[in-house]
Each structure stands twice: as C-alpha cells, then as structure tokens.
C-alpha cells in the first residue's frame, strides 16, 4: 500500500478491523483505485451500526478536450479532425453528431473525421470538452466503497468533489450528526471538509 499516504481502518473490534483492512486493500486494488487515492480513513462500529469512509484523492487529470488528442485542420468548406488517441473517439462522435447533425459528420477512416461545415472557428472546435475523467472516477470510487462496506448497509449518504469524498452507510437511519462525524474523521487525517 505504499502508494497511499495515509490508510487507516478504525474499529472497536480489533479482529474485524483487520479483516476490513484486508478487504479494503483487495477491493481498491481490484478496482485499480490505489493510484488515485492519497488518504483514506475507514471507521466501522458494528454496535451502532455505522460505516464511514472518508478520503482525499490525488490530483485528477483535467477535462479532456479535442486539442488534447487530435489535430484540427480548418478549410473553407470543411474541417478535418485527425485523431491521435482512439480511446475518446466514441464520445467525440456523439458530441459532434449532436452539434452538427449526423449528415455533416463523415468518418472516412478510423483516425479521421470530416465535418462539412463552412467558416468554422478552429479554436472553438479545439476547446470542445469530450470527457471529464473525474466524474467517472469518483463514481468508481464510491462504488468501490459500497463494495467494501459491510453487506446490507442500505442507507447511504455520499459526497465527492474538490478532491475529497466520503461515504456514510448504515442499516438504520443515519444519525443526525453524521456530518460532524465525517469532519472528525477528516481531522484525523489532517484535512478538513
């Protein structure tokens, strides 16, 4: 776990805590999330019962725009987009179809898209956002935490954004002061929500 700066599992039952440390380790590894987490603190109290996971992520790559993976060549009657990385092709096509209509978007081969439009602004096309990796990443992160949490904790509250995330889960109604608990756990890591 050397990739993570801080990783603690806090639990009144020592043996149970150790099992959950192993579970968290295995799940995060399986979901390929160890490299994005900077700090993670998990608190489980089976007496209440409650499960709280709070964490901080590393710097997440910015929004991917067309200029990041393709060259845009504007001519009078058409615009040619030469793609370097196919990974973003599908979402890009979807955006272009919506923007210009399917009949104007041609794809003569795998790496080329031709837009039949007049007088396009090159800079504007280059700046079109294609994918926001943080969105799917936080969703994956929350999903992984749901996998880690004890089975049957169906009442959940989650939050993510600004490089911080948390998940609180229980089988009962969540306590009213659960946000204070979350802040408390962030403070243990030397962070604040």
């Amino acid at each position: 776990m050397d990739a993570i700066e801080y990783f603690e599992v806090e639990c009144p039952e020592v043996a149970g805590g150790n099992y959950y440390r192993r579970i968290a380790d295995v799940v995060l590894l399986d979901h390929n999330l160890l490299r994005v987490i900077k700090k993670l603190h998990i608190f489980i109290d089976p007496q209440v019962p409650i499960f709280i996971a709070v964490g901080v992520t590393k710097k997440i790559p910015h929004v991917v725009r067309i200029r990041d993976f393709a060259d845009v060549n504007v001519q009078e009657q058409k615009v040619t987009i030469s793609i370097g990385d196919e990974a973003y092709l599908a979402p890009l096509l979807k955006i272009l179809w919506e923007e210009y209509g399917k009949e104007r978007v041609n794809q003569p081969d795998r790496f080329t898209i031709v837009l039949n439009i007049e007088g396009a602004d090159r800079a504007r096309i280059e700046e079109i956002p294609v994918i926001d990796p943080s969105e799917s990443l936080y969703k994956d992160l929350i999903y992984a935490l749901q996998v880690i949490q004890p089975e049957g904790f169906k009442v959940r509250r989650q939050y993510y954004g600004k490089e911080k995330f948390y998940l609180v889960a229980s089988e009962n109604t969540l306590p009213e002061h659960f946000e204070d608990l979350v802040r408390e756990k962030f403070a243990l890591m030397g962070e604040s929500l």
Binding site: E13, A15, G16, Y19, Y20, I44, P46, Q47, P49, P150, E151
Partner: peptide, 10 residues
C-alpha cells in the same frame, strides 16, 4: 454450514 461475517457483535 453457515457462513457469517467478521464482527462478533453482529
């Protein structure tokens, strides 16, 4: 054979 969880409280 009953497979139970990790916490003795539960």
């Amino acid at each position: 054979v009953y497979l139970l969880g990790d916490f003795e409280t539960c």
